[in-house]
C-alpha cells in the first residue's frame, strides 16, 4: 500500500525530532538535516515499506514531497 503523506511527514518529524514538517520543506536547508539524518530517514523508509533507494538517487531528494513521491513510485513498482 502506498505510504500516505501523513505517514512520511510523521516519520521525518520523528527522525529529526521536529514538531512541524511540510511536504515542500527542503530536508537540508529548511529542516537542518545532516547526511546521517537523511540516511536514517531513507533507511527507515526502506525497512518500513520494503523498498530500496539507490545511492545515486539521494542527491535528487531535496524536499519531503520528493521523498514521498519516490517511495510511492517504489511501492507501486514492487
Amino acid at each position: 500500500m502506498n505510504p500516505t503523506t501523513e505517514e512520511i511527514l510523521a516519520l521525518v518529524r520523528r527522525q529529526l525530532g521536529l514538531r512541524e514538517v511540510h511536504l515542500e520543506d527542503d530536508i537540508a536547508a529548511d529542516l537542518g538535516a545532516v547526511s546521517a539524518d537523511i540516511i536514517n530517514i531513507v533507511a527507515a523508509l526502506e525497512d518500513h515499506y520494503n523498498v530500496m533507494i539507490g545511492e545515486e538517487e539521494l542527491p535528487d531528494i531535496r524536499t519531503v514531497g520528493q521523498l514521498h513521491r519516490l517511495v510511492c513510485e517504489r511501492v507501486e513498482a514492487r
Partner: peptide, 14 residues
C-alpha cells in the same frame, strides 16, 4: 558496501 552502510544507518561518505 552501499547496502551495508544503509543497514548500519551510516552515510557512504562515513
Amino acid at each position: 558496501l552501499v547496502r551495508a552502510c544503509r543497514s548500519h544507518r551510516l552515510p557512504l561518505n562515513a
